[in-house]
Simulated assay, not measured.
Amino acid sequence: MLYALLWGGIAASSLLIGAALAVVRQWSEVAIGVVLAFGAGALMASVAFELAEGGLRDGGPLAVGAGLAAGALAYFFADRGVERWSGRKGASAAGAPLAIGALLDGIPEQAVLGIGLAGGGAVSIALLVSVFVSNLPESIGASADMLAVGRSRRFVLLLWVGVAAVSVLAAVAGALVADIASPALAGVVDGFAAGALLVMLVDAMIPEARQKARDLAGLATVVGFAVAAALSLLV
């Protein structure tokens, strides 16, 4: 439990770091896009070497398949809901979809961290790095948008404190569920996180990275994948 709280807090801390960076200075779109692409590549490696592989090992192909479908559908419909809400709110909602998106993909990511730590297991360094890095551009971009439309710095920081707190609680919940759940359920959760992340990567993270970083996006994605894959296979 304490380890889940600790490592979940470390992973979620990048949300606060990103918000603070946006508050203290203005970042170029290219810089944000490069970090976003690096995080996307790292998450790809985590989906392949951590979530899918771990889910198959724990719960088998049926559990992972069910989780993949559930996670993909959950993220898809939640994201559509955020888009409709943002459209109604107009400019005053600037940055909110990114913040909600960080919460939507952060919960399953953190839950998987907690499951891995349950029963004294070792933290997945590859997944931890992937979550930490991918959070940065989301919080920087959303914070910059909200500041641009007049939101106060205090509001922005408090918003990300709330998102980070929910993410940490997801890690603790994952650890609690793993203590009482069957291996099949752990496989479903792994699959759910993988499905949600894959939809998020294709629909949001990669297109935005390409738009902001342009020709650098592909290279940064490969570097992120290589780093996370190496951590996953060697650590």
Results as ranks from 00 to 15, higher is better:
Leu98Asn: 01
Leu233Asn: 04
Trp160Ser: 11
Val35Thr: 07
Leu43Asn: 02
Phe38Pro: 00
Ala99Met: 09
Ala213Asn: 01
Gly54Leu: 07
Ala40Cys: 11
Leu98Ala: 03
Ala22Arg: 01
Gly162Thr: 11
Ala102Phe: 09
Ala31Pro: 04
Leu197His: 06
Ala4Asp: 10
Tyr75Val: 03
Val199Met: 05
Ala74Phe: 11
Met200Ala: 15
Ala4Cys: 13
Ser130Phe: 02
Ile206Trp: 02
Leu2Ala: 14
Val123Glu: 03
Phe155Glu: 15
Ala66Asn: 11
Leu68Ser: 01
Ile115His: 05
Val129Cys: 09
Ala170Met: 14
Ala12Met: 11
Ala40Asp: 04
Val82Arg: 02
Ala19Ser: 14
Gln211Cys: 05
Ala173Met: 11
Ala96Val: 15
Ser167His: 02
Val123Trp: 04
Trp27Thr: 12
Ala72Glu: 00
Ala217Arg: 04
Gly9Met: 00
Val222Thr: 08
Val177Glu: 00
Val149Thr: 05
Arg84Gln: 13
Leu158Gln: 08
Gly8Trp: 01
Gly218Asn: 05
Gly59Asp: 06
Val189Ile: 13
Val163Asn: 05
Ser46Trp: 00
Leu219Tyr: 13
Arg154Met: 11
Met1Val: 11
Gly59Tyr: 06
Val129Asp: 03
Glu138Lys: 03
Val24Lys: 14
Glu29Trp: 09
Phe192Ala: 00
Ala22Met: 06
Leu62Phe: 13
Val223Leu: 11
Gln211Ser: 15
Leu5Asp: 02
Ala122Asp: 15
Lys89Ala: 15
Ala91Val: 10
Ala12Pro: 09
Val156Phe: 07
Asp203Thr: 14
Val156Ile: 10
Ile107Ser: 00
Ala94Glu: 07
Leu159Thr: 05
Ser143Tyr: 04
Gly120Trp: 00
Val112Thr: 09
Ala229Gly: 06
Val24Met: 12
Leu68His: 05
Ala99Leu: 13
Val24Asn: 08
Leu198Gln: 09
Ala226Val: 10
Leu231Cys: 02
Leu169Arg: 08
Ala230His: 12
Gly41Asp: 04
Lys89Tyr: 05
Gly90Leu: 06
Asp190Leu: 10
Gly87His: 14
Val47Pro: 00
Gly141Thr: 12
Ala220Cys: 11
Gly101Arg: 03
Thr221Ser: 09
Ala12Gln: 12
Val172Arg: 02
Gly8Ala: 12
Ala4Val: 06
Leu51Trp: 03
Ala184Lys: 13
Thr221Trp: 08
Ile32Phe: 03
Phe192Val: 03
Trp27Asp: 10
Gly106Lys: 08
Ala40Met: 03
Val177Ala: 08
Ser130Trp: 01
Arg214Gly: 12
Val161Lys: 05
Ile140Met: 08
Met200Val: 12
Arg153Phe: 10
Phe49His: 14
Val166Glu: 06
Ala217Ile: 01
Phe77Ser: 08
Ser152Ile: 12
Ala42Asn: 07
Phe225Lys: 00
Phe155Cys: 07
